[in-house]
Computed example of a mutant assay.
Amino acid sequence: MNRPKIDIGISFSGAAGSQFGRNIFTTMIPYKSIESFLKVFPEVQRNVNKARVKAIAEYVLNGVNEKNYCFLSAVTTTCRGEVEYNDQSKTVTIDINSILSINDGQHRVEGIKLALKNLRNQVKKEKSTEEKLILSKKLEHLENMCIPVVIFESMDEQHEQQLFHDLNNLAKTPTKSISLKFDNTDPYTAMAKELAKENDYLIKYGVETEKTQLRDNNPNLMLLSTLRNTISFMVSGSDKDKNNALTLENYDDQKNTINEVFDELFKALPSDANDRKKYIIGTAVTLQGIGKYIHSLMNDDDIVDWKSYVSGLQNINWKHDNKMWNGYGGNYDAEKRKFVFGGTGGGINGVRNALNENNRPIHPHLVS
């Protein structure tokens, strides 16, 4: 490519090509340099979602702190100014007066900037010399990380708006279960995927990893997302685990316990528990409610043998038309011939409360 030489610029390794008559450059820009070049222009972008920015910043910092897999996809930009490519050195040079207008990826960029800001503040406020050194090394590591950037050359505002529209219109958000299927950062998701393949009962009843919902003719008992949340309820009492009840240090022990819980649970549930027309067990609310109930059993100092209470679940009538369930987060719908929960949170607590008030333990020595 023959381009006018840039007098003063910054060069990054990269490549050049064309798409629909437009010159395109790809490069890797270090996190510490994104503030110098990447900018959002309101006329070609939507308003930033601060909650999403914070979530990405947390994701980035977790990747540094815990050495997790942490990936951010390429940011797409248009260059407002001069950019050139050198075939011999394989470098993309951006004029220091040029700005890369972000057309896709502003939340990723803002998340990186917030992560850098937070870590820099931690370094500044840290009093301990040893801890300050550790944080400084993490900051240096983070600043030198790179994000892929695709640069379109010389577009007017109208074309930038069209680029934003096309990038977002053609993108398709994956289902929650598919997202979880490929997520290796969340320990609860990891445990759910492992137990779905290892626990004999979960293998028998099936865990759906592709669909967004289970219809009556789907033979699987639950979605992967439901299994993930049920495990989280069992371990932490919530689907969020804000207190970090599950850590890398206790992961194996917790997994062994949860595996045992599922064994005891499915021994007590009906053998055809995945019949959603017959039982309320196949609803996400019920399974998560059972998870929350089990958490309360395992964390009640007055209960010595939680297994005896789980065994007692065999005497619960799980059928849709059981009047016992009425008032516990929902009601029986005679037309649909199903018990319908009024809401997720209320239903989960309703199931937990129903079991707290109606379940009785079965002691091993009383079982014939």
Rank of each mutant, 00 (worst) to 15 (best):
M1S: 12
I8Y: 03
A15I: 13
A16D: 12
F20S: 14
I24F: 15
Y31W: 06
E35M: 00
S36V: 04
S36M: 12
K50W: 11
R52V: 09
E58D: 15
N65F: 12
E66V: 09
N68Q: 14
Y69V: 12
R80C: 10
S89V: 04
S89E: 10
K90F: 05
T91F: 02
V92R: 02
S98I: 09
N103M: 10
K113T: 02
R120Q: 15
Q122E: 15
T129Q: 13
I134S: 13
L142M: 12
M155W: 07
D156N: 08
H159Q: 15
E160Y: 00
Q161A: 11
Q162D: 14
L163R: 08
K172D: 03
S177E: 08
T189P: 06
A190R: 10
V207N: 01
E208P: 01
R215W: 10
N220A: 15
M222D: 08
L223D: 05
L224Q: 00
L227E: 07
T230N: 02
M234H: 03
D241H: 00
E249R: 07
N250Y: 01
T257E: 15
T257R: 15
E260A: 11
D263C: 12
K267M: 13
L269S: 06
N274E: 14
Y279D: 06
Y279A: 06
L287Q: 15
K292D: 09
Y293T: 00
M298W: 04
D302R: 11
D302S: 13
W318K: 11
G327T: 12
R352K: 15
I362V: 11
H363W: 06
